[in-house]
Design a protein around this nucleic acid. Structure first.
Lengths: 168, 168
DNA sequence: CGAAATTACTCGTCGCAACAACTATCGTCA
DNA sequence: TGACGATAGTTGTTGCGACGAGTAATTTCG
């Protein structure tokens, strides 16, 4: 058990959990929060949020092609119900541009700009270094295992619409 | 139409990573995001955020004692630079109360109210069910391992001020 | 052909989070 | 005792995120 009450109120990391599942989730939350701080620091320097960076990366991966807003939104790591304004902000900074498709004027195609690609290139190394700082202290084997367990953990909660697109 | 051509752009979960560390972090992010959705749903029903719930739980654990604002802030799972207003909102709902200490008028002591305790009791079961839904599909052994790996992952990034409190 | 449904966003509103600048209180040391 | 820091919160501003309602373009179907 925990050390016999060094102090009454203060039990910093030694917390009592109602269940093992809760323990895991709180650990997940805290670990995400700690590691995220490092990332935000890197992105903050160029005025991007992690989500914005994520969107730009996806666009870069198909550069110089474009993709519709909704497709982009569905492929982001974290769900974003406000794609429009996220893209608004990036467009205002000229990191991407949007245009309606003539053949289906409901669809807005999004394309990363040259300037956007340049920005990503500029911070690429810093981002990689950041990931090393975040997790570089773990062994390859542990990293693999962690990635696998995380995938298993969320597997039942993945929106099926994501996966079904590939084979329709 | 579109059958073969859609496949080009759409690669839902199959993403290419720059490094193993990045892969782990993105998995961490996504898993957190997915599981968080379930929690937010439960808390949303009583108008709480996860962070607010977290604060109330900490206060409940020392009920009917109180603790200073800054101590509470430092013990939250996720960092909160805006304790004052978080507590403002909870106080407005009469879930807790605050009072300045007479012997040191800089310190504000926070105490959960009877109403707050009652609210926590009311949702306790739903929260536990939620944790089961989040992670109940994993084996005990995997959950243990996941919790351990997560702890190891964030270990170098824990603020030491947290840990030093226990033995002062 | 035209009304209804569907799709793909867009916009109004609100609350919360982040950073910084500020205030009040207390300890300290010349 | 009175300026100087340090401590503990508070407040201003700004911006992003979430939810929902609204709009425009296309498809469906009687």
């Amino acid at each position: 058990m925990a050390k016999t009450s060094t102090r009454t109120a203060v039990t910093p990391t030694k917390r009592t959990y109602d269940s093992l599942e809760q323990e895991v989730f709180l650990n997940l939350w805290r670990t995400y929060d700690r590691l995220k701080t490092l990332e935000d620091d890197v992105f903050g320097r160029v005025g991007l949020s992690a989500q914005q960076y994520n969107a730009l990366r996806l666009l870069q991966s198909i550069y110089p092609d474009a993709m519709p807003t909704l497709v982009l939104g569905s492929r982001l790591i974290s769900r974003a119900p406000d794609m429009t304004r996220l893209l608004d902000r990036l467009e205002r900074r000229e990191l991407l541009n949007r245009e309606r498709k003539p053949e289906n004027r409901r669809v807005v195609e999004v394309r990363i700009s040259k300037k956007g690609v340049t920005l990503l290139d500029e911070i690429h190394d810093a981002v990689q270094e950041c990931h090393q700082q975040q997790l570089g202290h773990l062994k390859k084997k542990d990293l693999r295992q962690l990635a696998d367990l995380l995938r298993q953990a969320r597997q039942p909660h993945e929106n099926p619409s994501h996966l079904s697109v590939a084979d329709e």
